[in-house]
Amino acid sequence: MTASASSRTGGPDLIKAVPVRHPGRWVGVVIIALFVFLLVQSLVTNQNFHWDTVGTYLMDVLVIQGIGWTLLLTVLSMVLATVLAIILAFMRQSDNPLFRYISWVWVWFFRGTPVYTQLVFWGLVAVLYPKIAAGVPWGPELFSFNTQDLIQPFLAAMLGLGLNESAYLAEIFRAGLKSVDAGQMEAAEALGMRRSKIMWRIILPQAMRVIVPPTGNETIGMLKTTSLVLAVPFTLDLTFVTSSIANRIYLPIPLLIVAAIWYLVITSVLMVGQHFIERHYGKGVDNLVPAPVKATQAVTAAHTTPEAAAATEEGGHV
């Protein structure tokens, strides 16, 4: 016998029960394995998939550049949308009725019209407003520029996607802010904190737990919505590039597979990122190492000395 705690103290006989067997699960595994085998076999043996072409174009320079543009569009429009969404959600909760109204109208408009239509309009903005000028009304013009030079297709695509997304994200952020207990606001107010500081340091970090999962959803959605930017027209993204290659070589299927593989790879990477963001904002709530409720002095002293506490506190701010 080893010198375990129980043997030393002559402790209880630990239970070694026979677990319930699950033969059905093994049958399931066999059936699914069979189906996967058949599927893979069909994918490999069916010449119509043109796997050699998939291989040729998977790492094609144009395709890789398309991924770059798609990623850039996704990231920049999500950043734009997030910044706007935070502002919109705060405005919606504001005491100021003007802010609340503006926020409502913004969400109403950008959520209420198709993103495709919005993209077309951003592409046409130079036609609608050839020149943007700043100056005194009916007075001298301070400066002006040609819209055509300013709103390049990339910017138009980013604005179109970002502004549309901001309306959806604003609702997600609003839901998150509302999910935080009202007592948090009161406690911070009672400490003499200003409202903006309370929102930013107390309410939003707690709301992020609720906000991150649906925002991850939206980001993955955005990755694929970027394929609509041909409406602008912006023609460098992954979908447009692969379909134009497909049109050139008359082989649509392998290029669709190339695009699908890359979208899947990027989505997987984004999901890993989301996992870490969720872990960050779950601090203090999710996955806590349970501390003993009535910890004895000896145990806690070993865990947490004041110095250790102060040291970990250093990096502990959001």
């Binding site: 007592g183 948090q184 009672a190 003499g192 904190m193 107390i202 601090k283 203090g284 506490a309």
Partner: peptide
């Protein structure tokens, strides 16, 4: 003010809860 339901900030440790207002306000 001390509340019936404590209303500590759950995303902050005990120490961080206490230094929040002095440092920020």
């Amino acid at each position: 003010m001390v509340f019936q339901r404590f209303n500590l900030f759950p995303h902050r440790t005990a120490l961080q809860n206490i230094i929040e207002a002095p440092t920020q306000v």
